[in-house]
Simulated scan of single mutants.
Amino acid sequence: MSPVSLRHFLRTRSNSEKVNITVSRLDSLLLAKIADQAERYHDVIAQIKNIITCTDAQLTVEERNLLSIAYKNITASHRTSWRTIDAMQKTAARNASWQEVLLMRRQKELIERDLTETSKEVVELLERFLIPAANPGEEKVFYCKMRGDYYRYLAEMSRNPARDQYATTSLDAYKFAYKHALSTLDPAHPTRLGLALNFAVYYHDICSSPERACFLAKHALDEAVAVASDPTFSVQSLEDSLMILQLLKDDLLLWSGEIAES
């Protein structure tokens, strides 16, 4: 894709005002960090897209994390709202009036539309620019995991046949990322652990298979603990991974309980 078409895509896809492409990379990064602190996540995305335009989709770790966190915060709000209304619909299924049911359905459809638009924007950015430009190793794993995450979000609130299509694409993305992580990252690397966690969540939430979720989570946990027990392992790397290891443990306990009760 030519620089002109890349710039056109990134500028027209932003939900904020048009980005001033004459702003320097450092200025864009500073503006993105300020917007992040102010919780103006669409502005964060606009500034990082500006950087992508000027750098042929090559982002630093800090820039990449700002983009990821911005999209995560936007979609997390939508997903929470969707789940709230979904639970309300189930609770009110027998007692609510048809007007209440209709209003809940309409509100849920609005949330689905917003979540779908955001998720599709993310995966298009990943598939057209960030993944093709990514270096082998941690960077490629990070972006491919992110691709799997957003197709999973699409699958969560979609109905067949779209749900099956999104679920299959999410699975393919996770498998590719995990295979690449196994060959390029050590078992206790936080990006590899984060991928294992989200891949296990996919099996539990999308495939309704706590057994496969437990198998993947336990395998990742056991390998990471074995590596981290080595005296030569970096303490700093371990600190970065501790939170994810705890989440893996918590989910493993929860899912094991589900299997025992079934």
Rank of each mutant, 00 (worst) to 15 (best):
L185V: 05
P161I: 14
D230K: 11
R152K: 15
K90Y: 02
L242M: 13
L238T: 10
S119N: 14
V227F: 05
V123W: 14
E117D: 07
Q107L: 11
D240S: 13
R212E: 15
K18V: 03
T184K: 09
R212G: 00
A46Y: 02
H78R: 01
R11K: 04
K140Y: 08
P190N: 10
L221R: 07
Y202S: 02
A46T: 14
L6T: 15
L66T: 03
L103Y: 08
L6I: 11
K145S: 10
D250P: 04
K49S: 05
D164E: 15
Q99K: 14
I34S: 01
G148P: 01
A76P: 02
S170Y: 01
L195W: 06
A228M: 14
A46F: 04
N135V: 06
D172Y: 01
L26A: 15
V122C: 10
S234I: 04
A217Y: 03
G257C: 06
H180L: 12
Q58Y: 12
K179M: 07
H219Q: 15
L197R: 12
L67C: 08
I85Y: 09
A220F: 08
S256T: 07
V101A: 08
L221T: 03
M104C: 12
W82D: 00
F233G: 00
I52E: 09
N160W: 04
A228R: 10
S158R: 12
H42L: 09
T116W: 09
D149I: 02
A93Q: 12
E112D: 12
T91K: 09
A200V: 07
L67N: 01
Y166L: 02
L125F: 04
R192P: 05
S241A: 15
F142D: 05
R192T: 06
D56Y: 02
A213N: 06
F9C: 02
L238Q: 09
E156I: 14
Q37L: 14
S234E: 09
L26Y: 10
V122Q: 06
L126I: 13
M1G: 13
A177K: 02
Y202G: 04
R212M: 15
E121Q: 12
I45K: 03
A260L: 07
A226I: 02
D240I: 00
L125Y: 01
Q99R: 13
T191P: 03
T118K: 09
S237I: 09
I244C: 03
V227N: 01
E63I: 05
T169Q: 12
V44F: 03
S262N: 11
A224L: 06
M157T: 13
K108C: 11
F176E: 09
L247N: 10
K218G: 02
Q236T: 13
K249F: 01
F176V: 05
D250Q: 11
R64H: 09
S170A: 12
L185P: 00
